[in-house]
Design a protein around this nucleic acid. Structure first.
Length: 420
RNA sequence: GUGGGUGUAGCUCAGCUGGUUAGAGCACCAGAUUGUGGCUCUGGGGGCCGUGGGUUCGAGUCCCAUCAUCCACCCCA
């Protein structure tokens, strides 16, 4: 039986890898403009980091983690998201002791044991950003502007920005009580999942998509109405800043992010056209997280983008012109006795920054011409007996079909002349 | 974890109610006179018909299981 890539994983082959390079490049450039520097963290961490940092009641921790024992019986977990590792690194290296705020971005694979479907894999890729050390609502706005700028630079237009505030621990507690008061009379009508959600984290009952649960909790209070004065002001400033920047958003009372550590601003980007898994990005503020992970009481905010979902959205766009991967020059070697000399020619051209390739499978001249054509070569250099004896090359312009003979020392200038 | 669809050549697929050596298009390779590409023509290589069992004189085709994949649910990126 043939060995195949494990379930929920896949290979990125050329030319698809070019699309990945393109997205990563756009993110890098945008990050630089916004003043974010790259951080690279391990792909696995101690399991307890995610249990504490992501939240023990979340689906990610309860059923989706790739956890294993190493040879010393440590419990390790393939990272399911990027924030926890950033927080760990911030604390471990006392980065907060330096210049604040700390503005990081990252890109890389994440792992969740889920059933694969459109836009969902077991090894998937996220790029994200994290900022530590400021509770300014203008920073919330900047983080969202960063995210939106990436989408815009990629040429994506038809996205929805959903926005909400989940408040601070204070207003969240009063809201939680209001919600419990509202739900408890109809508790029996909820689905099994919601009954356990009600026990563990009542806020997540609001996320349920079961119709009967929707009806049962109709008229539930919104957290927005329970926000304390500070949280309200914070949220208003975030919204006003976005409005002034011309960023459209939808206030979404039902947006209660699945991760436990979020406070205040929460947001998600949806592109409905890519399928059921339409969230291409999401994030929010997590002011309690650093402390919860054993660090000082430092506020944080961040987001993550799903690369596979971005790719899906990009695929439905009109074709972007591919980066120039076509060959400049093909060197046709007409007799194997010139193989060695041919390698010297390749070397010279490449050192002159000319993109050049040749055949290594012993093709006939005609086949080499065909091959060169398929590689998209703009020029073919012919190197046969005539040329070698006379110390020259035949240079063929593939689009005009014109050929000229050039002396060895004139080869590079002649090629550059045709290419430019 | 649950439900449904699909597994035949490198890719996209055909193969009617079970019946001889399993096909097409594309791709790949080679030719169409001497050292010249795109178009056309001719030829060629490639398939344990996902895997394992079962029914049958006979299975790509029917039944069961299993694996993979796709779509959806849950949840999220």
């Amino acid at each position: 039986m043939q060995v195949k890539a494990p379930r929920g994983t896949y290979d990125v082959l050329p030319p698809d890898s070019q699309k990945w390079q393109y997205i990563e490049q756009v993110i890098q450039e945008t990050a630089r403009l916004f003043g974010y520097s790259e951080i690279r963290t391990p792909i696995f961490e101690h399991t307890e980091l995610f249990e504490r940092g992501v939240g023990e009641t979340t689906d990610i921790v309860t059923k989706e983690m790739y956890t294993f024992q190493d040879k010393s019986n440590r419990s390790l977990t393939l990272r399911p998201e990027g924030t926890a590792s950033c927080v760990r690194a911030l604390i471990e290296h006392s980065v907060y002791g330096g210049l604040m705020p700390v503005k990081w971005y990252y890109s890389g694979p994440m792992f969740r044991y889920d059933r694969p479907q459109t836009g969902r894999f077991r090894q998937f890729h996220q790029s994200g950003a994290e900022v530590f050390g400021s509770n300014s609502p203008y920073l919330d706005a900047e983080v969202i502007m960063f995210l939106v700028q990436i989408l815009s630079n990629l040429g994506l237009r038809d996205y929805e920005l959903h926005l909400n505030s989940v408040g601070c621990p204070l207003c969240r507690e009063s809201y939680r009580q209001k919600l419990i008061d509202h739900i408890s009379p109809v508790k029996e009508k909820l689905c099994i999942d919601c009954q356990s959600r009600y026990e563990k984290n009542p806020l997540r009952v609001l996320d349920c998509k079961v119709e009967s649960c929707h009806q049962a909790i109709a008229g539930f209070p919104y957290i927005y109405d329970s926000l304390c004065d500070d949280c309200q002001e914070h949220y208003i400033l975030v919204k006003a800043t976005l409005e002034d920047s011309g960023i459209n958003y939808l206030h979404d009372n039902n947006l209660v992010r699945g991760l436990d550590y979020y406070t205040n601003t929460a947001f998600e980007i949806h592109i409905p056209s890519i399928g059921a898994q339409s969230a291409v990005g999401g994030g929010g503020r997590y002011n309690g997280l650093v402390k919860a992970c054993g660090g000082p009481d430092i506020p944080g905010i961040g987001f993550a983008l799903g690369m596979e979902r971005l790719l899906l959205a990009l695929d439905s766009l009109p074709d972007r012109e591919e980066p120039n991967s076509k060959l400049d020059v093909f060197l046709a070697v007409l007799d194997e006795k010139y193989d060695n000399q041919a390698m010297q020619v390749l070397d010279r051209l490449r050192k002159a920054k000319i993109m050049v390739d040749r055949d290594y499978t012993g093709r006939s001249m005609k086949a080499q011409m065909k091959y060169a054509d398929k590689l998209g070569a703009r020029i073919v250099i012919l190197m046969g007996e005539d040329e070698v004896n006379r110390g020259c090359f035949t240079v063929r312009n593939m689009s005009s079909r014109e050929q000229l003979e050039v002396q060895t020392e004139q080869l590079i200038p002649a090629i550059i002349d045709i290419l430019t």
